[in-house]
């Protein structure tokens, strides 16, 4: 992995990560997004984690089908990344964050 980027993203990013209980994939996703946050946002971003096994209504409210799902609420456009986010390069590409 690369060292932390010289310039961190300044924009106000807002993410919601949907997980389901303590499943392996969910835990891995939490870990991965945290790492991305540290590496590229300098922890300067808004991350909300919703466990749909506890908050069941949230799943249909946010149109969640696959778990884990990372929803980028802002900035526009809204994006949904499904999967455990282990493919960092792909995640960054989807988020249009250049290294």
């Amino acid at each position: 992995m690369k060292k932390a980027s010289p310039h961190f993203i300044k924009e106000n990013y807002k993410f919601i990560l949907f997980v389901s209980g303590m499943s392996v994939k969910s835990l891995r996703a939490i870990e991965n997004i945290r790492k991305i946050g540290t590496d590229y946002f300098n922890d300067n971003f808004d991350l909300q984690i919703i466990d749909i096994s506890k908050d069941q209504a949230a799943a249909s409210k946010h149109q969640i089908v696959a778990i884990p799902s990372l929803v980028k609420e802002s900035p526009d456009p809204r994006r949904v990344i499904v999967g455990d986010l282990s493919d960092t390069t792909r995640v960054l590409k989807i988020l249009e964050i250049t290294e």
């Binding site: 499943s23 969640i64 986010l85």
Partner: peptide, 16 residues
């Protein structure tokens, strides 16, 4: 809207 990065399952559907 949806992109895939890594493994997932359809727990969301099940829970809904």
């Amino acid at each position: 809207e949806i992109e895939e990065a890594g493994e997932y399952d359809l727990d969301g559907l099940f829970i809904r």
